[in-house]
Amino acid sequence: MSVAVSDAMPIFEPTHLCIVVPVLNEAQGIQATLQALAPLRQRGARVVVVDGGSQDDTRALAQAHADAVIEGPRGRALQMNAGAALGWGEVLLFLHADTTLPEHADAHLLQALSQGHVWGRFDVRIDGRPRMLAVVAAMMNLRSRWTGIATGDQAIFMRRATFAQVGGFAPLPLMEDIDLSQRLCAVGPPACLRQRVLTSGRRWEQRGVWRTIVLMWRLRWRYWRGESAHSLAEDYR
C-alpha cells in the first residue's frame, strides 16, 4: 500500500477509534478477545460489545473488559449498527468475537486512513489444526486484494463519515460484509493491510474444511447471481 499523504487529511489518534464487537453466546472466549484489546484501550480506543440476546454469561463476562456492553437486535449487521450508533470515535473497527487483532493494529489502520484511504481490512490467519486452513486464509487474502471485497473475519475498519455515507450495514442475516464492501468500493479502494488478524477455525473444524469451503463458495456464487441473503442464511444454518 502506497498512498501520498494529503495536507488536508487529518492525522487520527488512537483516541478516535471505536471497536465494535457483536456477540451471541460467546462466554467461552469473550474474555480472551476483550483482554487482547486492553493495550488499545490504554492508548485511548473505546470498545463496545453489542449482545444479541445471549443465553449464557457473555454480557457479565464482558463488563470488566469493555467501555460499554449494550443489547441490540439479534443479527450481526443490526448489532454492529447499534454499536456504531453510540457515536463514539471518528474511526470504526468491527471485530468478530472470535478474532484477535495484530499488535499495534490501531497504529496500522490509523496510518492507512491518514494516507488517504477511507476504509480497509487486515489480512487473516485461521487458527486450527487442519493444515488446509492456511491455504483457506491465503486464498481469502488474495481474493480480497483482487476484488476489493473484505470479509468480517478480516476486521473491517473505516471512517465514521464513510460508514454514514454508505448507510451502514444492511439488515441482512448473511453476506452483510460483502454487501458493505461493495458499497464501500464505490467510495474508494480498501487499504489491504498485511498485518494479520487471528480468527478461530471452529466453523471449518465443526463442519469439515472442504465441506465448509464448498458451502461458502456455493453461497457466494448464489449471492452474486442475485439470490436473497435471507434464503442463503437458511441454507447456511
Rank of each mutant, 00 (worst) to 15 (best):
S2A: 02
S2K: 05
A8N: 13
P14M: 03
L17P: 07
L17K: 04
C18N: 12
V20T: 15
V21F: 11
P22A: 00
N25I: 00
Q31C: 09
Q35F: 04
Q35E: 15
L40W: 01
R43K: 13
G44K: 03
V48T: 02
V49W: 04
Q55N: 08
T58A: 01
A62M: 00
V69C: 09
V69Y: 01
E71L: 04
P73R: 15
R74N: 10
R76D: 00
A77Q: 02
M80S: 15
A85I: 02
G89F: 08
E90S: 15
H96S: 14
A97I: 01
D98S: 08
D98Q: 10
T99P: 06
T99N: 14
T100Q: 14
L101D: 01
L101K: 00
P102D: 12
H104S: 15
D106G: 06
D106A: 08
H108I: 14
L109C: 10
Q111P: 02
A112I: 12
F122I: 01
R125W: 11
D127R: 15
M132T: 05
A137P: 07
A138S: 13
M140K: 02
T147P: 03
G148N: 10
A150S: 14
A150D: 10
F157V: 06
R159M: 14
A161I: 03
Q165N: 05
F169R: 01
L174S: 03
L174D: 03
I178E: 13
L184C: 07
A191E: 06
A191P: 08
A191F: 09
V197A: 03
V197R: 00
L198P: 00
T199E: 00
L215N: 11
M216W: 12
W217N: 12
W221L: 14
A229Q: 12
